[in-house]
């Protein structure tokens, strides 16, 4: 059995049940109505599930992950000490924009394993950067008030060095 997923742009992706099962939203949508009988609502290929918030490019990338994990359980919980498989780290890469899009989509589609991996990916890209570097990377504007800056100087003399390591 296969299910058709329709991206934001209307592109159709035909995926097998084990792959679709990795996507929480699709699983709920396809099997939720008749879960106990074991029948899918979307058994007909002509029917599709529209994922209005996910672009084709991101959906295709997410499907690569789902395909990889169709027969395995991904990590769904972790902290800084957790070691992710090499394939996962290669998959997620170091492109911050790409990871952020994947993260948003994983959150929207209810894919906890991919969400965790994307969090790890972002943390890895941020790792070792000073505040200025993080602001530049994420396009964040430092919006501290003068008083807050004074407070930060008092509570953490290290801050200035972080901003301007010479």
């Amino acid at each position: 059995m296969s299910i058709t997923l329709i991206s934001k742009e209307g592109a159709q992706f035909l995926v097998s049940k084990p792959v679709a099962d990795r996507i929480g939203v699709v699983r709920d949508c396809a099997y939720g109505a008749d879960f106990w009988l074991g029948y899918a609502v979307a058994t007909d290929d002509s029917m599709g599930i529209t994922l209005a918030n996910v672009t084709s490019s991101i959906l295709s990338k997410i499907l690569v992950w789902c395909e990889h994990y169709k027969d395995m359980e991904p990590l769904v919980d972790g902290d800084s000490n957790m070691e992710f498989p090499e394939w996962d780290m290669a998959y997620i890469g170091h492109d911050m924009n790409q990871i952020l899009f994947v993260l948003e989509a994983a959150d929207y589609l209810h894919i906890p394993g991919l969400l965790l991996l994307a969090c790890k990916g972002i943390a890895d890209v941020l790792d070792g950067r000073n505040p200025r570097g993080i602001c530049d990377l994420l396009g964040i504007v430092m919006d501290f008030s003068h008083r807050q800056e004074v407070d930060m100087d008092k509570e953490n003399g290290y801050w200035r060095w972080f901003l301007h390591p010479t």
Partner: peptide, 18 residues
């Protein structure tokens, strides 16, 4: 000297992250 405490860095980027 090159080692940076990223967590502290993040907390010094903007009010939201802080």
């Amino acid at each position: 000297r090159d080692v940076i405490d990223t967590l502290l860095s993040v907390s010094c980027t903007c009010r939201h992250f802080r």
